[in-house]
Amino acid sequence: MSSRIELHDVGQTFLVRGDDDRRLREFVALDALSLDIRAGEFLTLVGPSGCGKSTVLDLIAGLTQPSSGTLRVDGRPISGPGLDRSVVFQQYTLLPWRTAQANIEFALEAKGGLGKAERAERARTYLGLVGLANFANRYPHELSGGMKQRVAIARSLSYQPEVLLMDEPFGALDAQTRERLQEELVSIWERTGTTVVFITHDIEEAVFLGQRVAVMSARPGRIREVIEIELDRRPAADHDLRATTAFAAYRHRIWSLLREQHVAPQEVAHVA
């Protein structure tokens, strides 16, 4: 139910046209990025916007091929998208003409091997997992942002991938909905044991969710540091993990790491 992912010396360049000089040039999005993601772990990837977090995710998903370096899942090189890896995007990517249940069935149709009744049954099970059993027949436009993202998560889990890739899935949600979904996600992860790679620019979200937090640096994107998070996550109604000193210390450490690189380029510019 879970896979190990290795990124070794990965580089990614894109061809771009400059806004000012209208010339074609290469843009180095990632440079010599190496990262080992353990089987079954919850890893969060945090970094300033534009640092190439989503590029990393696209590479693991197999949507793009790296310019250099290797990516492996359980030792096998990644050559394209596969049903062993599933992605939840920031924008809700539900099919607007299908109900919540039919959206999940859509993923199961793609996987194949299940009859119509089995698909419906499985879709209802996973809607139940994200607490939307009563909303099976609602169309996406009849659901709130948080509900849509829950359906997207249920869809991604429904075909039982070994890796769940999440690209700022809670970025567009309000603060309370976001916290509730974070907690639900942790509990779903604990039950399913899937490897989760979760991208965010929100430091608190990274610390709260991740067993490990990989901090990226910007331009070119590299892994700056991987921090093990050891927090007491036993669920309790009155336990506000975010208010503990340990949480604050982790948060501050990552904040400092991101701050350093934020200041650095300005100094260079000043000297120049």
């Binding site: 995007f89 924008q91 149709e109």
Partner: peptide, 24 residues
């Protein structure tokens, strides 16, 4: 984004057209 999610699901171009592109 819908096309990306179809690719993630490994849908063939024909199936992508029938299930995603045309209805959209």
């Amino acid at each position: 984004q819908l096309l990306r999610s179809a690719r993630v699901l490994g849908l063939s171009p024909a199936a992508t057209f029938r299930k995603v592109v045309f209805p959209a």
